[in-house]
Every structure is written in structure tokens, then in C-alpha cells.
Amino acid sequence: MPVRLYRLFQGLTLIALCLFLAGKLINGKLTWYINMRFVPLTMLGIALLAMMAQVIFSQSRKKNEDDEDDHIHGSTRNLIILFLPVLIGILLPARPLDSSAVETKGVNVNAPLISNASTSQFEVAADHRNILDWMRIFNYEKDLSPYLNQNAKVIGFVYHDERLPEDQFLLSRFVVSCCAADAFAIGIPVQWEGATTLEENTWLEVEGAVQATEFNDQRTPLIIATSVQTVRTPEQPYLFP
């Protein structure tokens, strides 16, 4: 491939990657892939890609009479491979991790994942705690009595774990430390008489009193649901510890 043509395609691939990332940033879907705290890093990446493309394009415009002799060695393949992420992003439906990922990633009922679990975090008002907050409390607090029978109001998706009794399901969220690769699911058992009718993967807001139970040899909260409502998938489907 002649150099100028190669430079042109190289620049186009850089622009494609740049626009792909910028698109994810603008429509807020970047947090389907990475932890919120690394979003500025992606912004830097977008800027660098744009700068690189700019330089490459200006190179491809430079006219050298000897250019006809220059040629590129076996890098056409690289262009295609670097375009694959954009292609996969377009062809496969963008979807945050859901219950089908739980099966390979496994579901966790303990929340060891938080070192800075200072008890101050437990002072969040009961109905503002998310699934992770509740699990932290049940993992770290020795005395649960102040928390029992508090009213919980949490959002998560339905995951039917076969280890649970018929009238219970796991209300789950994925916890992402840096990117979707390290995501793992956590879940709180919810008791609800219509549990079996709930479809896997549905996002719910569950309200009810918190009890303590044992699941998988681990002390965990159990919500006795008084209300179960279908909600839309939250803008940020994952929890960031």
C-alpha cells in the first residue's frame, strides 16, 4: 500500500476510535464499561487520538515526489484490528452486564471489597443505602440490632439463585472497581410472594424491612418486601466502591 494511502486510512482509524469513545462519553454509556473515576482518562485518550489523527492527516497531505516508491509493510492488518473495537461496538448491542454475566462471574454475598469501610459510611439514612452499603453493614458491623427492621429501599436487577427458597430472589448489582473485566455481582435476598413471577434481569425498586439471614454460610441482609416496582435501568447500572 502506498504511504499516503496508508496514512489516510491510519488517520481515519484514529478518528473512528476517537469518535467512538467520544460518542460513549457524550451519551453517558462510558460507565457501562469503566469505573466513573477513570472517565477523565478516557477524555485524555480522546484528545490524544484527535491530535495523532491531525498530525497523521497533515503527513498524508505532504507531497513528496519520491512517495511513489515508498510502501508499507504488512500493516494493513493492524488497521483492521484497531478498527475491531469500533466494529464490535457497533455490531453487538451495547448492554451493561446483567444476569447472564452473573452465571460466569458468580454472585457474591459478602462485600470484602471495601477497605475504607469506615463506620461513618453506615450513617447514611436507611432508605438511601444501596445494596453495597447494606452488605458492608452486614459484613463489618458486629452489632446488627440497630439495623434490623429498618426500612430499606434499594434498586437492583432480579437474579434467581437456585440456592434460595421459592419465594425469594436475589436483588443484584454489579460492582466495578476499574472496568467491566473486574466486575462481580453482589446480591441481597428479597422475600416476595410473587418472586417466581418476576422475570430474570428486570430492574426493580424494592422496599421493605431488613432482617438478617444466612446465605452461603455468610451473614447477609434479607429484605421482606412490602413493595416491588419495576423501574428503568439506572443511568449508571454499576456500583463503584
Binding site: 462510558l30 453487538l92 447472564s100
Partner: peptide, 23 residues
């Protein structure tokens, strides 16, 4: 069921690493 999971995990690693590779 699994392909979207694959796409999300793949793009997660890729998006995370691209800025560092550029640097």
C-alpha cells in the same frame, strides 16, 4: 445472551487501556 457480555468486557479492557497505550 453471552455475546453482549463479551462485548462489554472486551470494550471495558480496551477503553481502560487505550489512554495508557497512547501515552
Amino acid at each position: 445472551q453471552r455475546l453482549p457480555v463479551f462485548a462489554t468486557v472486551f470494550l471495558g479492557i480496551f477503553i481502560e487501556a487505550v489512554p495508557y497505550l497512547l501515552l
